[in-house]
Simulated assay, not measured.
Amino acid sequence: MHGPLSAAWLLVALCAATGAYCLLRMRSTVEEQRRTAGGEALMGFGMALMAVPAAVLTPPTWAWLLYAAVFGTAALRALWAARRGAHHLHHLVGTFAMAYMAVEMAARPAAHAHPGGAGTPALTGALLAYFGGYVLWSGARLVPAAATTGAAPALTGWGDRPELARACRLSMGIGTLAMLLTM
């Protein structure tokens, strides 16, 4: 992606840290949590790779097509899983957005180094609106229930804490929003 180097490296670090935490969440005793964490780890590490500044590494076209294939496959898997719950719809939108950005970068490799052009395509605008709303919504959900009700939180393993999972989803939403803004 293009943009300021320091912001790009911060995005790489944020996405890689999120992916690493999601790998740790895969050790959960809850099967659905493990499955969800695996998809989120893929997203975190994939976003970290895609966010490496173009001044440091400009991937060849085949690499962008590989990203598109991986995220397209993940989108199909999320589409299949969406029949079980609404959260999988967010995974579907997220993986689709990553596949879309990879296809765009493969189609316009010169745009990777030189932003700008004829304006924002409608699909990019729709994804920006979705992820902007998602970031605001998920950020508001980080307020712990114990802070609003006065109840003490139940102690669980740090890999099974729902607020940490929400924080990871929030950081990936922020990362996707930042990457879409550079398109």
Rank of each mutant, 00 (worst) to 15 (best):
A118W: 11
G44D: 00
L65P: 07
P60T: 10
T182G: 14
V143Q: 06
V70D: 08
A86D: 12
W9Q: 03
G139V: 07
E163A: 12
A37W: 07
G133K: 13
W158P: 08
A167P: 14
L181Y: 04
A151L: 06
R84M: 03
A140E: 10
T73Q: 07
C22Y: 10
V103I: 08
A154P: 08
V52W: 09
G72H: 06
R34V: 05
R35G: 02
T18K: 04
I174R: 10
Y134E: 14
T95F: 13
T29P: 01
L23N: 04
W62Q: 07
L49I: 05
L127S: 01
T58E: 08
A147T: 14
G150K: 07
T95Q: 07
V135W: 13
A122L: 15
R25F: 03
V103P: 00
L65Y: 13
T156G: 12
V135S: 15
E40P: 00
V143T: 12
T148M: 11
H91M: 06
A55C: 08
T18N: 15
L42G: 07
A16Q: 11
E104Y: 12
W80M: 04
A13W: 13
A99R: 10
I174E: 15
G133C: 12
A118P: 09
R83L: 10
G139E: 07
A82E: 00
Y100L: 01
A75Q: 10
A152Q: 15
S138H: 05
L177D: 04
M172L: 15
E32K: 14
A13F: 12
L42C: 04
M179A: 14
S138Q: 13
T156R: 14
L24H: 12
P53E: 09
A165Q: 13
R141C: 01
G175F: 06
G175V: 01
L65T: 08
R27C: 02
